[in-house]
Design a protein around this nucleic acid. Structure first.
Length: 334
DNA sequence: CGACCTTTGAAGGAG
DNA sequence: CTCCTTCAAAGGTCG
């Protein structure tokens, strides 16, 4: 089994206008290749903020403690790699299961009419990839795995939230519906693959999304940050607007990313020992982009719920009310 | 003191 | 409809 050749074949297929088979197919190949080169294990990946250092603007770089302390960086990387090696032994099994489902669900059926040769080629590659993955799997293979992607412990320091009050949403999709199209399948696969390189995120104590639902600590904190704004705002804007005082300043409700940011900021600052919000937000932005839609869903739902509350509390408010309250921002050119 | 940096998403306005 | 702008958070930095 030559995985490199296999992946080249896959690229060839992808390059032949196979729009319904997006890049995630190649991602599978890349993942398998990585595993082949590493003896059947995923390569551990250091925290993204550390990897990204060289691309940061100079003004930010000089403030990064890891930039000034290479020993601390090396130590962090070593620790991260060690933890990943300990915890990712099940990842290949996960890929195997997805490949098996893709193959079993006859994903080429919808393009078979137009291009039987291409469909046949894809099916063959899927089967080869499955065989390649099985070949890499250390014996004995584990028949079933529940949640194989526990993030390294240092990426999930205990939040100040104790118990989970909502049922866990499985990150791994089930492809029981034969009508699901291939794009959905490969999208899920991409999510699964991505989850091997990014820390998982989970909101705990989160109540159901409803304006009338019970409130957990986290939610109450967020609500307080939104609803306490009737007539007031941040220290900065309060100062600048106190003299006007015609109409109370009501802040915008947070969007999904802001909800995520609010929950994760303390975690990032503790993890990397940084307090620069710009740097923290950059890291959070990267992690956000790597999260699956399913993982993001709870933040979008929370943002919707807060928006609902905000609308109830301030029925006449419009976001345009806040326009012009800040000075125009001039973007830096790096 | 207060704008800027940095991020994503929502919303409004202009064309 | 598309594109652009503004603002939500937040703490260090800088003029």
């Amino acid at each position: 089994m030559d995985l490199l050749q296999l992946i080249e074949d896959l690229d060839h297929v992808n390059n032949n206008d196979l729009d319904s088979y997006p890049l995630s197919m190649t991602s599978i190949g890349d993942a398998l290749l990585d595993m082949a080169e590493s003896g059947g294990q995923f390569q551990p990946q250091p925290p993204q903020a550390l990897l990204r250092e060289s691309s940061l603007p100079e003004s930010v770089l000089v403030k990064n403690p890891y930039h000034e302390e290479p020993d601390a960086l090396q130590g962090q990387l070593k620790e991260t790699c060690s933890e990943w090696e300990d915890q990712n032994s099940d990842s290949l099994q996960e890929i195997l299961e997805v490949l098996q489902q893709l193959t079993d669900n006859n994903p080429t059926a919808d393009v078979e009419e137009n291009d039987p040769h291409k469909a046949s080629c894809i099916q063959k590659i899927l089967e080869q990839m499955l065989a390649g993955a099985e070949h890499l799997l250390p014996a004995p293979a584990q028949p079933q795995l529940q949640i194989p992607f526990a993030p390294p412990s240092h990426l999930t320091p205990p939040l100040h939230i104790a118990e989970t009050k909502y049922s866990h949403v499985p990150s791994v999709p089930m492809f029981s519906d034969q009508d699901q199209n291939m794009t959905e399948h490969t999208g899920h696969v991409a999510d699964i693959l991505l989850k091997n390189w990014v820390p998982d995120v989970e909101i705990k104590n989160r109540p159901s999304v409803s304006c009338d639902g019970p409130l957990g600590d986290f939610t109450r904190a967020l609500e307080s940050s939104v609803l306490s704004l009737n007539g007031h705002t941040t220290k900065k804007r309060l100062r600048s607007n106190q003299t006007k005082a015609e109409k109370p300043y009501i802040k915008k409700p947070p969007n999904a990313f802001m909800v995520y940011r609010q929950e994760q900021r303390a975690k990032i600052t503790a993890e990397f020992n940084i307090s620069d919000s710009a740097l923290v937000n950059t890291e959070l932005g990267l992690r956000w982009k790597c999260m699956s839609k399913q993982d993001k869903l709870k933040y979008f739902q929370e943002a919707d719920r807060l928006k609902c509350l905000h609308a109830q509390q301030n029925p006449d408010w419009s976001s345009s009310d806040n326009y012009g309250k800040k000075k125009k921002r001039i973007k830096r050119n790096y």
